[in-house]
Amino acid sequence: MFRRKFLKIAGLGAAAVALPSLGAYAVSLNEATAGIILHQFRFLNLDKEGVDQFVLDYYKQEGSSRSAFAHVKMRGYYMLNINSDQSQLVRTITTLYLLSTDFFQNRMNELKLVRYQGIYDPYKTPCANPFSALYYPPAPAV
């Protein structure tokens, strides 16, 4: 009798551990990365097709350095709604996405549609300082 009870409890414990990890595999790596970007910049009007294209370009550029652990980690970040304050990987991806869009050329206007222009590469992109005073919105008149 004790053995059956032990096996039931052990089976329930194993299922409780296995089921959430199986849920992480229900979402693809590209969907998880796009979801992280959309969640991080939910206050912006993002072009969803552009986000998907950025994710494809990002993983194409990253190449074969993706490990199985990185896949699980990114899916876990998506499932747990980890933001850029909590993860350096999320911060890197979201910063690269924002630099790859026309957000700074539009003077950081949050009402305009943010469009993906191409993966940001500081060695190929023309010298534009997105933090220049030319891109800031005009100061209100006093």
Rank of each mutant, 00 (worst) to 15 (best):
F2T: 11
R3A: 09
K5L: 13
L7V: 15
K8T: 10
I9L: 09
I9R: 04
I9S: 09
A10V: 08
A10I: 12
G11Q: 08
G13S: 15
A15W: 03
A16T: 04
V17K: 08
P20F: 08
G23H: 14
Y25N: 12
V27E: 02
S28G: 10
S28H: 05
N30T: 15
I36W: 03
I36S: 02
I36E: 01
R42Y: 06
R42K: 07
D47P: 09
K48A: 12
G50S: 06
Q53L: 15
Q53G: 08
F54M: 06
Y58H: 07
Y58E: 01
Y58A: 05
Y59A: 02
Y59V: 00
Q61K: 11
E62W: 12
S64N: 07
R66Y: 07
S67M: 01
A70V: 11
A70G: 14
K73M: 05
I82V: 08
Q88F: 08
R91H: 12
R91I: 01
T92S: 13
I93M: 04
L96F: 09
Y97C: 00
T101V: 06
T101K: 06
D102H: 06
D102Q: 09
F103Y: 09
F103I: 04
R107T: 14
M108I: 14
L111T: 14
K112A: 07
L113H: 11
V114S: 00
R115L: 07
R115I: 00
Y116I: 00
Q117F: 05
Q117A: 04
G118Q: 02
G118T: 09
I119V: 05
P122V: 11
P122Y: 13
T125E: 08
P126N: 02
S132P: 03
A133N: 11
L134Y: 08
L134W: 09
Y135H: 09
Y135I: 08
Y135M: 10
Y136T: 12
Y136G: 05
A139G: 11
A141D: 06
